[in-house]
Design a protein around this nucleic acid. Structure first.
Lengths: 199, 199
DNA sequence: GCCGTTAAAGAATGATCGTTCTATATTGAT
DNA sequence: ATCAATATAGAACGATCATTCTTTAACGGC
């Protein structure tokens, strides 16, 4: 039987994600990849087809990981509303602590105008976040935690848009006040629909 | 005296903006530019130095134009609050009608991680929009049109972030519902601080 | 030990990139 | 008419790109 692969595919994908995050698709060259990943050209081509194949795999890998962790947080123990608040806070603190690298989904969205595959992957990622938020809001509604008239879908769309606004503007050098203000107003939006338990 | 330039620099910049919007900085080649702009290589180099110089000029041109039209709208006749509403609606309708090309500021922001000059231009553009919104809110406050306790700076930061969230997510193929929801909630935020005139 | 598969290293391909150089033509003021 | 500066056209540069090919070595089941 064949000689076993001497590299871990998942580990290679992680390295590729890191590079694509730093420099984007066009800004990352195959020599860059082989150098960083410690793998020779041919192995890359044998495993992923070509550069775009590797990129799509990396995108998928990143998106799934991010989506999973966020959905897990939203569906975790604790009240759905509080989980949503934690998600929003986490988004902001993550955004402010490591402004150097940006969200790969944002980068890919901007640079995939002519790449239907990449755009589809990004779209799915955004949708899954939005759906997760909507589900959390619906659960909160069923539990009587928020106003019964709340349009969960509409609110989820709005929160998603604002979160991605943060994910975009975090790339500016002076974004911390802007991010804090956005989080604060998002929190206010949630508080306004919350049904305060009788104290 | 020298032979006069046979091309209009402003017109060339407009064409460059269009190309950079479509394909980004790295995706636009010098042959692309000369073809589209109807100008020979050498003239480009003589006028703008190099490709990056042309890019920065185009970025500046685009940003100034956008900022001017938006600030003019905000400072125009009519109540500041209504002007702000018009701005937000215009942002959304513009976003939904021509989803093919995206905001150049968004593209440049994502792709300028290693380009301090471009980043500075983008930052200034975002700041000017944010400042314009803050000024409009402050004027609305002085005119007694909105709640006196409103934190104009914070609200302006939040609106700016959400607007750029729209400018980013408009690149997704199915973004119209998301944009509509975001606009709707932004409007709600404004209505909540508005002091209703006695009917 | 053999064989099929893979890894590794490096050369080579063809294309495209940004930029520069050369040569020639065109214009406007003097 | 002359001159300075620009326009245009095209060749050429060196660099880099993604990809393929070639060769040699390493491994595992038979």
């Amino acid at each position: 039987m064949p000689r076993p692969k001497s590299f871990d595919e998942a580990q290679v994908l992680e390295g590729a994600v890191a590079l694509f995050r730093e420099r984007g698709f066009e800004g990352t060259s195959m020599p860059d990849l082989t150098r960083k990943l410690g793998i020779c050209r041919q192995s890359l081509y044998n495993t992923f087809g070509d550069k775009k194949g590797l990129y799509l795999k990396a995108l998928e890998n990143y998106g799934n990981k991010e989506a999973q962790s966020k959905l897990a947080l939203l569906q975790g123990p604790g009240s759905p509303l509080e989980n949503l608040r934690t998600l929003i806070r986490g988004f902001a603190s993550y955004a402010t602590t490591c402004p150097a690298e940006g969200c790969l989904t944002v980068t890919a969205l901007v640079n995939s105008r002519e790449d239907a595959d990449a755009l589809a992957a990004v779209s799915q990622h955004v949708q899954s976040l939005e759906n997760g938020i909507e589900c959390a809001l619906t659960r909160a509604k069923k539990q009587g935690q928020i106003n019964a008239h709340t349009d969960a879908a509409s609110l989820a769309r709005y929160i998603t848009t604002s979160l991605y606004g943060i994910g975009l503007l975090v790339r500016l050098p002076d974004s911390s006040a802007r991010i804090a203000a956005t989080v604060s107003h998002l929190m206010e939006s949630l508080q306004r629909i919350e049904i305060q338990p009788a104290a």
